[in-house]
Amino acid sequence: MSNRNLKLPSDLIVSCQALEDEPLHSSFIMSKMALAAYEGGAKGIRANSKADIEAIRQEVTLPVIGIVKRDYDGSDVYITATRKEIDELLGSGCDVIAMDATFAARPAEPIEDLLRYVRSEAPGTELMADIATAEEAVRAEQLGFDYIGTTLHGYTADTEGRKIHHNDFAFLKEVIAAVQAPVIAEGNIETPAMLKRAFDLGAYAAVVGGAITRPRDITKKFVRELHGADL
C-alpha cells in the first residue's frame, strides 16, 4: 500500500494515556497533555477511550489514533478487542483506530470481521495494526491495515521482555523489510536519539508515550539511578 493521502504525518506522535491506577488519570488532564505535546511540536496523538479522545479534540486539531483498552476473560487481547470498542471509537471522532492484530485468541469477532465493519461503517477512518512479530505484520498488511505498529512487541507471550530497539532496532528493521505498508515505531522509545534512529531506519512515524507523558515513571527512573530502587 502506498503512502497516499494518509491522515497521519511522517513525524512524532505522542501517546497521551493514563490508566485508572495512575495519578494523571483524567480526560481533562489528558487533553492538556495533548495540548502540551502539540505546543512542543508533536504532529499526532494516540489516546485511550472515547472520553479522552473527545476531550483532546477540544484542545488540538492534530490527527488522533484512538484505542480502547479493556480486559476480557479468556483472551490476552485488550486493545480495541471487539465491536463494542470499535463503536466507541467511531463515536469519538478519532482519525485512526488501532487494534491488537496479533495471533492471540480474540474474545469475540475475528479480526477480519472488525476490519470489514469499520470499512463499511466509516470508510474514511484509517486502521492501525498493533503487532508483536513480523509474521503478524505480514498478515495485517494482507488484511488491509493502513499502518503497521510495533506496539505489542515485548508484551505478548512469545515476545515478552523484548524491546524494539534491542540490537539497534532489529525488530523494527525486520518489520520494515517484511511489509510495504507504513510502519509506525512504538514501544520503549526513551530518548530523542532513539527516535531519530527509528526514522533513519525507515519508520514512517513513531509513537512516544511514557518518556514524555508519564511523570511517575520518569521520576522512578531518576530515583532508581540515585538510590538503586523505587521509593
Results as ranks from 00 to 15, higher is better:
49 S>V: 03
15 S>F: 03
37 A>V: 02
60 V>F: 02
46 R>N: 07
37 A>I: 00
54 E>Y: 05
43 K>S: 08
60 V>P: 00
40 G>D: 05
59 E>F: 09
41 G>H: 01
23 P>Q: 11
51 A>F: 09
31 S>R: 06
52 D>Q: 04
42 A>H: 01
30 M>I: 12
23 P>A: 15
60 V>C: 00
55 A>G: 07
55 A>H: 05
44 G>S: 10
60 V>G: 00
48 N>M: 01
53 I>T: 01
38 Y>W: 06
30 M>T: 10
59 E>C: 11
25 H>V: 10
55 A>N: 11
52 D>R: 03
47 A>Q: 03
33 M>E: 07
34 A>K: 01
39 E>Q: 06
35 L>C: 06
17 Q>R: 10
20 E>N: 14
37 A>Q: 02
48 N>P: 07
22 E>M: 15
60 V>I: 05
46 R>V: 03
22 E>D: 13
48 N>I: 04
48 N>D: 13
23 P>M: 11
35 L>R: 04
52 D>T: 10
23 P>T: 13
22 E>G: 13
28 F>Y: 14
55 A>Q: 09
50 K>D: 08
23 P>R: 15
49 S>F: 09
20 E>G: 13
18 A>D: 14
17 Q>H: 12
44 G>N: 10
15 S>T: 07
41 G>T: 06
56 I>M: 04
20 E>K: 14
43 K>I: 04
47 A>T: 05
16 C>F: 00
27 S>Y: 07
51 A>E: 08
15 S>M: 06
54 E>S: 04
33 M>T: 11
38 Y>C: 04
25 H>F: 15
54 E>C: 06
22 E>L: 13
35 L>Y: 10
21 D>G: 11
49 S>Y: 02
24 L>G: 15
37 A>E: 00
31 S>N: 07
42 A>V: 01
51 A>Y: 11
39 E>T: 04
17 Q>N: 12
16 C>S: 00
38 Y>E: 07
34 A>G: 02
15 S>Y: 04
19 L>S: 14
57 R>P: 09
33 M>G: 09
59 E>I: 08
49 S>Q: 11
17 Q>I: 11
45 I>N: 08
31 S>C: 11
51 A>S: 10
41 G>A: 03
56 I>K: 00
24 L>V: 15
58 Q>L: 14
60 V>W: 01
51 A>L: 12
39 E>D: 04
29 I>W: 11
33 M>D: 06
24 L>H: 15
47 A>E: 02
23 P>E: 12
19 L>Y: 12
43 K>C: 09
36 A>K: 09
57 R>V: 08
48 N>F: 07
42 A>P: 00
26 S>D: 13
59 E>A: 15
47 A>Y: 02
24 L>P: 15
29 I>N: 04
58 Q>E: 15
33 M>Y: 11
50 K>H: 12
24 L>M: 13
45 I>C: 01
24 L>I: 14
27 S>R: 06
29 I>Q: 07
31 S>T: 08
21 D>K: 15
34 A>W: 00
18 A>N: 14
19 L>T: 11
41 G>V: 03
37 A>T: 05
58 Q>Y: 15
48 N>L: 07
45 I>L: 00
42 A>M: 00
21 D>A: 12
56 I>Q: 02
30 M>R: 13
20 E>S: 15
46 R>M: 03
16 C>Q: 00
19 L>G: 12
49 S>N: 06
16 C>R: 00
55 A>K: 14
32 K>D: 02
29 I>D: 06
29 I>V: 15
